[in-house]
């Protein structure tokens, strides 16, 4: 691998659970992210998947420096960005941008589309240098018309709003774009349009994506490498096809097998792993292997010794005492 564009090393973020009105005190801690490490190479799409509460969205915000780390380091292009503040942090914004999940909540309803897309230019003193032209260019890039600049976000459909969000993220020519569930709030036909747009933009500008999603089928479509998270920890990292065809961790296997396939014949023939119970509370995660309470392979050792995230076969680390591949999604591709 070449020099990574972004390296995350042992990221930790715990959120305090506050109680009390006058004197607020922490009564517990949510272990949102608990020792997460990964590297993203320039030009690749690195996926982070997991269910709600696994910490994937917190990872996105940590990387964007929207929330502060409790522990760990972030390195971008060899520069430590873990604690940059003020002007240095503003400079960092030129390099890293984010696309949000909810196209209804991520655009200020009181600003016009032109103001929204142009805001990064104003903030970074680039407006005088052909600002309006750049806004038109950006709108055109994401498939909107120049006249749309005068409208307000509520006049657009979900898919179009997501395009506005993408235009804003691209305004500063970033290298890394964090995509936080960019299509999960959209309808199927809009989803395909946005995924194709993201891919097109990546090819055109050599963008690197950190792609956060709960939907493994979307991840399979867009990502080059994937990390699977469970309760604040990475349980498996692999190249896309290695992950989908030879998943090693029981959780990944269950997750893949739970995604329905839009094909009745295959869908009804599948051997599905139905996990028992719910995801435990991240306030009080299970000891040792965090997945052992729901795991179909769990043994005594899983409750006692935490499995390390270590290489199982070539470049395919998984954190399980009993990691081994399972048959692919569908037993015999028809």
């Amino acid at each position: 691998m070449t020099e990574p564009l972004l390296r995350a090393d042992g990221l930790v973020k715990h959120f305090p659970v506050l109680r009390g009105v006058v004197f607020r005190r922490a009564v517990a801690e949510v272990h949102a992210v608990d020792g997460v490490s990964f590297e993203i190479a320039p030009g690749e799409t690195f996926g982070v998947v997991g269910e709600s509460g696994c910490g994937k969205t917190t990872v996105a915000r940590l990387v964007m420096r929207l929330v502060d780390l409790d522990d760990g380091t972030l390195t971008s292009d060899g520069e430590d960005i873990t604690r940059v503040r003020g002007e240095a942090l503003r400079k960092l914004r030129l390099k890293m941008q984010i696309i949000f999940q909810d196209p209804f909540a991520s655009l200020n309803p009181r600003m016009t589309v032109g103001d929204i897309v142009g805001e990064p230019l104003h903030i970074h003193n680039m407006w005088k240098d052909g600002g309006p032209r750049r806004v038109r260019e950006l709108l055109d890039l994401v498939g909107l018309a120049a006249e749309h600049a005068e409208r307000y976000p509520h006049e657009f459909s979900g898919g179009q709003r997501q395009r506005i969000g993408i235009a804003r993220a691209l305004a500063l020519h970033p290298k890394l774009v964090v995509c936080d569930e960019p299509v999960s709030a959209l309808d199927v036909s809009m989803r395909a349009q946005i995924l194709n747009l993201l891919k097109h933009l990546q090819e055109e500008f050599g963008l690197t994506y950190l792609f956060i999603s709960h939907d493994l089928s979307v991840v399979r479509q867009v990502c080059d490498r994937v990390a699977v998270m469970y309760l604040g920890q990475v349980v498996e990292v692999a190249e896309r096809d290695a992950l989908f065809d030879r998943a090693l961790h029981p959780y990944t296997q269950a997750l893949i097998s739970a995604i329905p396939i839009p094909d009745p014949e295959l869908e009804r023939k599948r051997r599905r792993i139905v996990l028992q119970g719910d995801v435990p509370s991240p306030q009080d995660p299970p000891r040792a292997c965090r997945f052992h309470t729901r795991c179909f392979k769990a043994q005594e050792i899983c409750e006692q010794i935490e499995p390390e995230l270590e290489q199982r076969c070539d470049d395919h680390p998984a954190a399980c005492h009993f990691a081994e591949p399972r048959a692919p999604v569908v037993e015999s591709p028809a």
């Binding site: 089928s217 399979r220 893949i256 999604v329």
Partner: peptide, 13 residues
Amino acid sequence: STTRVDRPRTGSL
């Protein structure tokens, strides 16, 4: 246009 978990990526959707 539906993404599928059982199919490798083939260009754009």
